[in-house]
Nucleic acid binder design. Structure first.
Lengths: 121, 121
DNA sequence: TTGATGTTGACGTTCAATGTCAATTCATAA
DNA sequence: TTATGAATTGACATTGAACGTCAACATCAA
């Protein structure tokens, strides 16, 4: 896949023409066409993608795909990463965690939720 | 603190003048002065900071401080964040984990190390 | 009082990202 | 077969963040 193909797929699934989407975004449809055909040298920014996400009412999965294909990071995740920047232990923690498979992560998440709950008292 | 003050502190601790550092970086010292006095509208990029880190032989702590003050993210952490972009379970996991205090994170990290070790067999 | 260091005004440049317009082509339904 | 809506493409232009320069001036310690 690519950003362009992903965008096109999503746009079509919402039954919108390039012109319609361009109108919603307030820009020329020529640019959209280029994006969809990956004729633009650099992938759009996070902000640009978020505008699309809003205008097309994308769900979390579609949003994630677009961000991923463009190599951009969600604002929330960027904040998390920035926090890890200042907390060495978090830094190490994250780097280890990425290596684990889905099941393990889910298990650990539950564990964390409980830890948090326990503290609330 | 601010990026400028942090940079100045680190530079001075390495006994370098602005001119010396500017030479190492291959740029004009005027720019460095501006940076140190936070007279530059936008904080330097990660790449720029990494050049400083190299030229001043900064340790991990100094590097983290500079990146943090500039609101930039370490390359490794960015990769981790990007991976989380594509793995919803990781996304949730990270967002939960940030809430935990140091001790808990350290404990969990040990747990993860063991999980990884166990799989190596 | 000179030499090293730092500050500042006033610019200039680069590059990623965003955007435009008009000519053309493509798809398809009347 | 042709009109119409949709998409593609060449050939630009614009914006904004980041990076950078030069020279004049200021500060200060030896």
């Amino acid at each position: 896949m690519s950003f362009g193909k992903t965008l096109r797929e999503i746009r079509r699934s919402k039954d919108k023409s390039q012109r319609e989407l361009a109108d919603l975004l307030g820009l020329d449809y020529g640019y959209l066409s280029r994006l969809e055909n990956d004729k633009v040298q650099f992938n759009p920014s996070r902000d640009f993608i978020m505008k699309i996400v809003v205008e097309l009412s994308c769900d979390d999965d579609e949003k994630a795909k677009l961000l991923m294909e463009a190599g951009r990071i969600d604002v929330d995740l960027e904040k998390v990463a920035q926090e890890a920047n200042t907390r060495p232990e978090l830094n190490v923690f994250f780097k280890s965690a990425v290596k684990l498979p889905v099941e393990d992560i889910i298990e650990l998440t539950e564990q964390i939720q409980q830890m948090i709950k326990a503290k609330e008292k």
